[in-house]
Design a protein around this nucleic acid. Structure first.
Lengths: 253, 253
DNA sequence: AAGTGGTCTAGACCACATA
DNA sequence: ATGTGGTCTAGACCACTTC
């Protein structure tokens, strides 16, 4: 065929825009620098603001940009690696883990959680809330579901709620001997309360890490940890993790 | 306070819409069923189509819906758990792994990859492309970057490219003795070629699993695997993984 | 040809942060 | 008060699948 292949599959404007912006970020901007506002940027590229926003959204999803209402759009630092797989046979709350107890209450868990705990559906459990900092920033919140059977020695002498209670529950947990732990990671969107903790808007993308700790043949603890997907790279395994980000579309030649 | 708290923080329409739809999906629809089209749905809820789409986008992100251009919107099955952390000290291509070699070529890697391989920036490497099926569906594509030094016994007698070549490279890899492997997981958006492999549109959310395999004190293989974030739940560790999805916003009472 | 989801426009108003 | 990003509208046209 002697004919020239001219854009038989024209790429969407926002996609092209994203590529252009991405290259500009690499070459002309430095971390923390603020970009022109959306209206100006849209005008500069000759597109509607909604189209420009579609490109910005993807760049934010990829961790290249950070947008804050009322403030502006800034160039994001590279994602921070947060270790998830380390403490192999330790319980939550073991010495030196990265989490900070926030609160604790005793309630009936959601149906899906009760099922995973294979406890009765109406059985109340301890729910410990913790948060995790990294590089001076809140990167995750966690809910720990702990059946009463997992902390038999727990007394009522401590405060019925609050950080002190949370620490008491976790302390009691250390007495169990752990058999195994299963972990899974999936994409989710932040619930209202998690979003608030993470300083994001509700619905922002998060990585949900669900861990089930087993002891004495049953599920002793269920942890649901919610990490900011825009700023976090979850690392597993032996060492500190690889650092590969935003693969350029084309290979260097 | 005797006053009634009336929506001092009114939630966005699309957020409320998402909640309503989510509940409808739980109670009134079954997996695979097709929803009314976007124009009808928008009219039914009295919102603009763009607003309705914002709700649908989030539900798709959470793996509750599947949308296909020209076809319609269907209720998605629960996410499939795909094991990522199993073969602890095995190389890619070891007997019984879940991957299928697709192609192989020898090129200069992107700069970020070259850096992670700590090889010279202009050093060509073998790039093996593989794909992974699960439950009859393509769930991931992978690029393996393998420096020539990692496969010293490789001969040129096989085809210079194609699946046969890929298998030859992987076979050669098994001779090395592995020291460690690091893994990390982060959110990304599908590049054009990956999107095609995964039967998604470019830019759709993916989970990028980067694994570095070490041998003889250096990086022997770098794997960048791209999983469909809408359909996959990545599982690690001892067993098959927990199954918790779409936590209802409020706890059961 | 008809129907679907995907892209795009040119506006408007709102919530939030900052000065 | 001003400026930012976030939400929302009512259209239009395009790409794709199916009939």
């Amino acid at each position: 065929m002697g004919t020239t292949q001219l854009e038989s599959v024209p790429e969407p404007k926002y996609w092209h825009l994203k590529t252009v912006l991405s290259e500009a970020l690499d070459s002309e901007f430095s971390v923390g620098e603020i970009l022109p506002n959306e209206r100006d940027l849209a005008a500069r590229f000759g597109v509607a603001r909604a189209t420009l926003r579609q490109a910005l959204e993807q760049l934010e999803l990829e961790g290249r940009l950070q947008r804050r209402r009322g403030v502006g759009t800034t160039v994001a630092p590279p994602r921070v690696g947060v270790a998830v797989g380390t403490e192999q046979h330790a319980w939550p709350g073991a010495a030196g883990d990265a989490w900070q107890p926030v609160d604790c209450e005793q309630t009936i868990p959601p149906a899906v959680v009760a099922a995973a705990l294979d406890s009765g559906a109406d059985e109340p459990v301890h729910v410990v809330r913790r948060s995790r900092m990294s590089h001076g920033q809140r990167v995750a919140t966690e809910l720990l579901y702990i059946p009463a059977a997992s902390v038999p020695g727990l007394t009522a002498i401590d405060a019925p709620s609050g950080p002190a209670r949370a620490r008491a529950v976790l302390r009691e947990l250390q007495h169990l001997s752990q058999e195994s732990q299963d972990r899974s990671v999936e994409l989710g969107s932040a619930r209202a309360d998690d979003a608030k903790d993470l300083d994001r808007l509700p619905g922002s993308p998060v990585l949900v890490v669900t861990t089930r700790f087993a002891a004495e043949g049953r599920t002793a603890v269920l942890s649901v940890a919610t990490y900011r997907a825009d700023t976090c790279r979850l690392t597993f395994g032996d060492s500190t993790g690889v650092e590969i980000h935003h693969d350029p579309e084309r290979q260097a030649s």
